[in-house]
Design a protein around this nucleic acid. Structure first.
Lengths: 226, 226, 226, 226
DNA sequence: TATGAATGAGCATTCATTCAT
DNA sequence: AATGAATGAATGCTCATTCAT
């Protein structure tokens, strides 16, 4: 009834379409996340987006297509956040351990957001029935994150602050140490994990990581910390 | 608890029932794994079990109930295999690293079986809509595995073969180092990972694990290996 | 609520299915005849048959399939009537002209029944989209009628009561002379043609037919008639 | 009356409109012929006419209205061709039989064109749901053809070349003898009938027709032919 | 106990039609 | 005059579930 088009009459024609498409995709993510692919019904998505059902079909042709675009959008968003966090390692400052713990903590915050859990759930659930989503996940997904992290770790190794013979492996294991324990702790995403716990998990992950890939300096620096 | 092993006096009649119930659960797992919960239809499950549709309802009352029992059964099976593998650490032999790598490799084999992937997919997908499955997962799921592993690691620490201040954490991280990298490598379970790769992944995980929690002995022993 | 099953409880189980299937087919013919294939909706057919919609699908799987069976049934019925009429020429009696006129008149009665018009309309309309209906029409349709008529005409030629060098052609032309004029006269089946007109049309058709294929005897016999 | 032949002063603008309207009607006939009335969708017609959907509504207000005008146009065209053929009997030349056969053959060519079959199919199918089309068919349809033919036959009777006591009946029967057999032969318009067969059908029809309505002269003339 | 048959509810998709531009 | 966008109303079809046997 009170669509977003009434607010800005001047740019309705040009932006109205784009806004509506985006509204549909957002609504679709909300509903898919809540109900799963098969259970979600287009009618509900349309209602959530304040559009009529056929409008959804006009913009995205199919329920399957709608799903694909929704997932791609969500994956892109999530990945952008992750990459921004990893980029912080470009300038880690004096205390590498602290920097890694900070990055770890921020990555966990991303990992534990409702959207991230929903996205992973949908991917896990539907990857079998949407084989082309593997492309999305492969090219724009976890691979890119470990790549970026591996880049950072390689640079840190070159400057003598880490000792990683295989940065890609180190990156994979860093992510694994970080996110692995959170899975069970959060009840597969159904319980909220307190921020203090996330910090502790990051610290523990970094501790083990540095034990394997750190230098002497990392440990002397840590000794001063509580 | 309700496994087919319970011996009943009136053999013929009771076995018939039990067999049929088991056939239904097996068929249900097959179909749920292939189609997902919402997409799977009871008719298809009945067909797969060579039973008429109402028979499914006679035995398991509901589609939701059928799902719950199916998942519980599959989780129990998977967990039993995992625990059996971990128990091998009770007598690790001389070469602890080799023992850990062997256990790691076997755990990965369990983790990568079609049934395991299907089970995890179904859990991830439907945990939101079946909150009581968290109990199943909590009590009989990954928790039990890390507990059992933590027990072994604690004993190994007591005998001086490891240095784990927090065995539960070490266990979590061992599992994480092991299974984390396989996720991406297997395309979330859609691609088969060659056995050689699994061995390599286990070796890498154990390497990092021992770096953090091993003793001097582990490394001298390893130096002789390729 | 007032289904036909309540009338005869004793044979409900065995006949119930058959009766229901037949009821569906009858209802389908009624609705298809009234609305055309594309316009007819299954819901309406189900209502007309006093069944639930899925029952229609249980018995006939598809709307298209339902249509095919409906048409086949109607074609069979119509053809049986036509063939019974033609068989009357096996024993034409003394007055061949009268016999032909009688048969012609009866054929026109068949031809002008609501069911016949509806069947022809549906066939004409949907033959393009249901190519396999040509089989139905070919094998069990108009071909069989002209064949049967040709048989009769051949026998009458053998007994010297007609002069047809090509009985199949003669049969085709007899039917054409009979039904051709009725098409326009009845407004393509939208108007009822009075029985007197049908008689007149039959007489005219037979007159021309005998002019071409009759013997001397047919004309002397006719001279006495009004 | 509203054909594209009406010359208008403001050429460019008016012609554009007229052309567009005609394009829409042509496209509509194509699509209706292919899909049937209910199956045809306005979107497809608009696409076929290279016009936007609302343009169709601007010009022809309704799907039903569009259909009516389309049918009328097609009927007019078809009728014009038929009448032109019949007019050839105005000057039959010496050999009446040859003239009738030629006219019969040409009528069959008209009758068997794709457009004619499509038109008849659409009429048969939708006459029930578009009662006002009966007017079109009555006034401008088959009636006019038999009228025109009856006129010719009457004149030929006056000049002693035929013996028709009821020219209207003779005309009806001529058409019936001609078109009746072609119906089955062409699989209700789904198969193409070879031209040789059409000639043979015309010859057979004329043969029977002349048997009933011809004079001595027609037969002596024929004896010389193969 | 096991089953063939029947049903009420729901969903993806399409289409004729109308605004605002 | 012509169009892109949006919608209300239907429609074919499926599915979980229940009787009656």
């Amino acid at each position: 009834m009170t669509g977003p088009s009434t607010t800005t009459p001047g740019r309705k024609a040009s932006r109205g379409r784009i806004d509506k498409r985006q509204a549909i995709l957002d609504a679709a993510f909300t509903v898919f996340a809540r109900e799963g692919y098969a259970n979600a019904c287009v009618k509900e998505i349309a209602a959530e987006a304040n559009v009529a059902k056929p409008t959804v079909y006009n913009h995205l042709s199919d329920k399957a297509n709608l799903f694909r675009h929704t997932i791609e959008m969500a994956a892109e968003t999530a990945m952008a956040e992750n990459l921004a966090v990893v980029e912080r390692l470009a300038d880690p400052g004096d205390d590498l351990r602290a920097a890694l713990e900070d990055v770890g903590h921020r990555l966990l915050l991303c990992y534990c957001s409702d959207e991230s859990w929903a996205l992973r759930r949908l991917l896990h659930a539907e990857l079998v029935r949407f084989p082309d989503l593997q492309e999305t996940v492969r090219g724009g997904g976890s691979h890119r994150l470990t790549e970026a992290l591996a880049d950072r770790l390689a640079r840190l190794t070159l400057t003598g602050r880490l000792r990683t013979s295989d940065p890609a492996l180190a990156a994979e294991q860093f992510i694994a140490l970080l996110t692995g324990p959170v899975e069970a702790r959060s009840g597969f995403g159904t319980r909220q994990v307190p921020d203090a716990d996330l910090r502790a998990l990051a610290r523990a992950a970094v501790h083990t990581f540095l034990q394997a890939f750190g230098t002497e300096a990392d440990f002397t620096a840590t000794d001063a910390r509580p």
